[in-house]
Design a protein around this nucleic acid. Structure first.
Lengths: 85, 85
DNA sequence: CTGTGACTAATAGTCCGTT
DNA sequence: GAACGGACTATTAGTCACA
C-alpha cells in the first residue's frame, strides 16, 4: 500500500509524447497549452484538470479515457491520501 | 461544432451518484471531498483536477477511465476553446 | 529542445452558515 | 437532501526570461 497525495501524469505524458516523436513545443502548439506548462506536467510539478487531460489527449490522437487508463495502470493499488481528511 | 471552455462533470457525476443511491453527503464522505464542492461539481460551477476524478471514481466503485469515458460520450464532437490562444 | 524560477490571475477545494 | 452564499487557503493556469 503506497500512499500518494496527487495523481500526476508525468511519465505517461512523456512516454506518449515521445512515441509520437513530438517535441514539448509541438505538443504545446497542438494542444493550445504553454510549452513550459507541458514541461511542468512531465516533471510532476503540476497536476492537470480534466479539461487539460482532454486537450492533451486530443492533441495526441487518443481518447481521454485511454490516457486515464494508462494512469490507472501506473497508480494501481495506490491510496490517494487527502491531507484534509 | 459546439465550442466549450471547460469539461464539466455535473450530469455524469449526478447520474452515477444517484444510481448508487448516495446522497451528496455520503459521496463527500466516501471520497474525502467537501459536501459543498460535490454540489458545485454537479452544478458545473467547478471543474475537477485529475486527482479529484480518481477520488470520486474510487468512491463510486468505478474505474477513472470508465468515468472519463462517460464524459467523452457527453462531449463527443465538442471543441474546447482556449481563451488564451 | 527542455528545465527552471519567479510571477500574477484564476480556480480548486474547505468551512461556516441559510434557505 | 440539496442549492446557494461568503470568506478563506492551497493549488493550478499560464507566461516570461534565461540557462
Amino acid at each position: 500500500m503506497t500512499e500518494i497525495e496527487n495523481i500526476t501524469i508525468g511519465s505517461v505524458l512523456k512516454r506518449m509524447r515521445k512515441s509520437l516523436k513530438y517535441s514539448q513545443e509541438e505538443l504545446a502548439f497542438k494542444s493550445g497549452l504553454d510549452r513550459t506548462y507541458i514541461s511542468m506536467l512531465e516533471r510532476n510539478v503540476k497536476q492537470p484538470t480534466i479539461t487539460t487531460i482532454f486537450l492533451l489527449s486530443d492533441a495526441m490522437n487518443m481518447k481521454p479515457s485511454e490516457f486515464v487508463q494508462l494512469l490507472e495502470v501506473e497508480f494501481e493499488g495506490y491510496i490517494i491520501k487527502r491531507t484534509t481528511i
